[in-house]
């Protein structure tokens, strides 16, 4: 809008404006206009420069996954796959067990996300809608779990899982993460925003607490639910320490630990490692593109005052 206006008055063909804008003004405006265009160009150059730095490691990984090991070691290096070969992908997928690791990651992540949402919804509902003795104390206990890093509990958890017979199994991978203090807190805040009158009206309609929770409270808290889903998804998907110590073979290893195995293979298969990295990163990149909005909300839950 503003630029169009400036543009129209700098045209000398409009006489009525000529009366108002002196020759010097017109020069000054044109100059400002030019400077603005240069500044926009500089901004694009700067943005592109930053984007290139950030993308460089990802770009080179994709390129290298399409090269042969000899081409990767060549100096000067290839910055573009002149004759892309896809063999590394099938090697990583089959011989490198990436298909298995991917499936394991999906199963464990689905278990954890579902588990966290169910337990957190129930707990948050109790804290937001029900009255019972020791409610305050119990809520503080929930918050206290946030102060204990998982690494601190890992020693005994390993013993516990072994004793339960869950070592090297999906149950062992998921069990310690089936509840979340953060999630309960997040959903409680959302439930507190549900008008009380709704609960009273629903009670008059004969809705019990369970029905009210599933039919009214949960749908109203959908943004917070989505945020929690994203948050626990990323947490579960990216886990490293626990799957490393609680699995012993590729049957139950997750993608992250699979990458560790793949990297350990010799350097003359480095293209397979790169292909494995792409396979491991792809699901999240696809999700990032589709669910960008929810992702941002999930990651910033709590960061910015509502």
């Amino acid at each position: 809008m503003a630029t169009e206006f400036v543009g129209s008055i700098s045209k000398p063909a409009v006489p009525i404006i000529d009366l108002v804008v002196s020759e010097e003004d017109r020069v000054a405006i044109a100059k400002r206009h030019r400077r603005r265009r240069t500044s926009i160009a500089i901004r694009y150059v700067f943005l592109t420069f930053l984007a290139a730095i950030i993308l460089f490691p990802i770009y080179i990984t994709i390129v290298n996954s399409l090269l042969t090991p000899l081409q990767i070691a060549a100096r000067p290096p290839f910055f573009f796959p002149t004759k892309p070969t896809w063999g590394a992908y099938s090697d990583a997928w089959n011989a490198g067990h990436m298909s298995l690791y991917l499936m394991n990651s999906v199963i464990v992540t689905v278990l954890i996300v579902t588990g966290q949402i169910v337990t957190a919804t129930c707990a948050a509902y109790a804290f937001a809608f029900l009255e019972f003795p020791l409610k305050r104390t119990l809520f503080i206990i929930f918050l206290a779990t946030l102060m204990v890093p998982f690494e601190v509990t890992v020693i005994t958890n390993l013993t516990t899982v072994v004793n339960l017979g869950w070592y090297n199994s999906y149950a062992g991978l998921a069990a310690p993460f089936m509840a979340t203090g953060f999630g309960a807190f997040l959903l409680r805040q959302a439930f507190l925003g549900v008008p009380r009158d709704l609960r009273d009206a629903a009670a008059l309609d004969g809705y019990g607490h369970w029905r009210f929770m599933v039919r009214v409270a949960v749908p109203l808290a959908r943004p917070a639910m989505a945020a929690l889903a994203v948050f626990s998804f990323l947490g579960a998907w990216n886990q490293y320490l626990w799957p490393l110590i609680v699995t012993k073979d590729s049957r139950y290893r997750t993608l992250q630990i699979g990458l560790r195995q793949l990297r350990a293979t010799s350097l003359d298969q480095v293209n397979v490692t790169f292909a494995g990295v792409v396979i491991a990163a792809l699901p999240l990149i696809i999700l990032l593109v589709i669910f960008q909005k929810q992702l941002v909300r999930g990651l910033t839950a709590g960061a910015v005052k509502g």
Partner: peptide, 28 residues
């Protein structure tokens, strides 16, 4: 540009480490 700037959120610790480990490897 925003999508590119947020893109590394899609990389896990393992993905980032293997990428940099290989990029820093003295041979390849």
């Amino acid at each position: 540009y925003r999508t590119i700037f947020s893109s590394t959120v899609a990389t896990s610790v393992a993905v980032a480490s293997v990428i940099f480990g290989t990029l820093l490897n003295p041979q390849v």
